[in-house]
């Protein structure tokens, strides 16, 4: 296995407060290989924001280490850290462009900070704006752009210093779904073309479904689940699998039960699953279902509504057909 490009080791962040200390990150281990797109999901308060602030070392971790491209950032003194941060590009939910500067001057900002001479800056800015599909808009002000265009400028700015890593903090959470798809397609395209490693923090499972190669679920500052998206969805009972391939919560009739069926087409074809279900008898209904292709794997999840008395027999027959099945209620 190639060495990880982003590596977090036993990362802890504790905020001392009067009374009890708040443990925001409680021993995070994470390794993201070069040119991967890795998603970090979790509810608000799970530690996602603290994690990203520790990654850029805007917050010093209490213990543990943060390494990017083989260099341990968490130990660097502030002055060295400033130049080390140029190898990390960051994209924000609220973009955080400077309203007083034109689009071109915003993209040029990190180059100014890095001391790139003015003449070279202009050429690089033009190149970056072309890269994100905003060629010719350099003289506009951010206030004149749509939300999606602003985020494209944000991405161009993040890439200005040719970083090895792109950190995206909820990059599409303020965008509508069509724009979200465009921005995600752009990020994937940039990864393919530039070979950059991408870490996306998000609360939207759609983002993970759309572009992530691997995903980590955070809860209470700990890693609950982590792995390639294809593997995670094959762990049918896991929280991530349920959230990535969701089925709705259903009302339950008197004397009825819900059985959840999950499979991947690696193990069993959809038509065989459906015929196994059909073989359970007339009293068994498919109440809800999702079939998706994720990370090259076709996965399905069905919710069966059946008489409570038939549950045991149904489970036996489904398991015999090679299908994962469990009673949910």
């Amino acid at each position: 296995m190639p060495p990880a490009h982003i590596e977090l080791t036993a990362l802890r962040k504790v905020y001392p407060t009067r009374g009890e200390d708040v443990v925001a990150l409680d021993g995070i281990d994470l390794a993201v290989p070069r040119a991967a797109i890795h998603g970090i999901v979790g509810r608000s308060g799970a530690g996602k924001s603290t994690l990203i602030r520790c990654l850029t070392v805007l917050e010093r971790p209490t213990s543990g280490s943060v390494a990017v491209d083989g260099e341990v950032l968490s130990d660097l003194p502030e002055a060295r850290l400033r130049s080390a941060r140029r190898r990390i590009g960051m994209v924000f939910q609220h973009v955080n462009l400077l309203d007083s500067r034109t689009v071109a001057a915003n993209v040029a900002y990190p180059l100014e900070v890095a001391g790139v001479p003015r003449a070279r800056r202009a050429a690089r800015v033009a190149e970056l704006l072309d890269l994100v599909g905003l060629g010719g808009r350099g003289d506009s002000y951010p206030g004149q752009l749509s939300g999606g265009q602003k985020q494209r400028v944000g991405i161009a700015r993040a890439l200005a210093t040719e970083p090895a890593v792109l950190l995206c903090d909820e990059p599409t959470s303020a965008l509508d779904s069509a724009t979200t798809r465009q921005i995600l397609a752009l990020i994937r395209d940039l990864r393919d073309r530039l070979g950059i490693t991408v870490l996306i923090i998000t609360h939207e499972m759609a983002v993970v479904r759309e572009i992530c190669d691997s995903v980590t679920l955070l809860e209470h500052g700990r890693v609950v689940e982590s792995g390639p998206v294809g593997d995670v969805v094959a762990h049918y009972g896991s929280r991530l699998a349920r959230e990535l391939i969701p089925v709705p919560d259903l009302p339950l009739g008197d004397q009825r039960s819900l059985v959840e069926v999950a499979y991947t087409t690696d193990d069993v074809a959809t038509r065989d699953v459906l015929s196994a279900v059909a073989g359970l008898g007339a009293q068994v209904e498919i109440a809800a279902g999702t079939i998706e292709t994720l990370a090259g794997r076709r996965v399905g999840r069905l919710q069966l509504d059946l008489p409570a008395g038939e549950v045991d027999a149904a489970l036996v027959r489904l398991h015999a057909a090679g299908v994962h099945a469990e009673v949910t209620r």
């Binding site: 805007l58 941060r85 140029r86 960051m90 924000f92 955080n96 900002y109 900070v113 890095a114 210093t161």
Partner: peptide, 8 residues
């Protein structure tokens, strides 16, 4: 924060 991340 964005400016700090960019190494300002």
């Amino acid at each position: 924060e964005a400016a700090r991340v960019m190494g300002s």
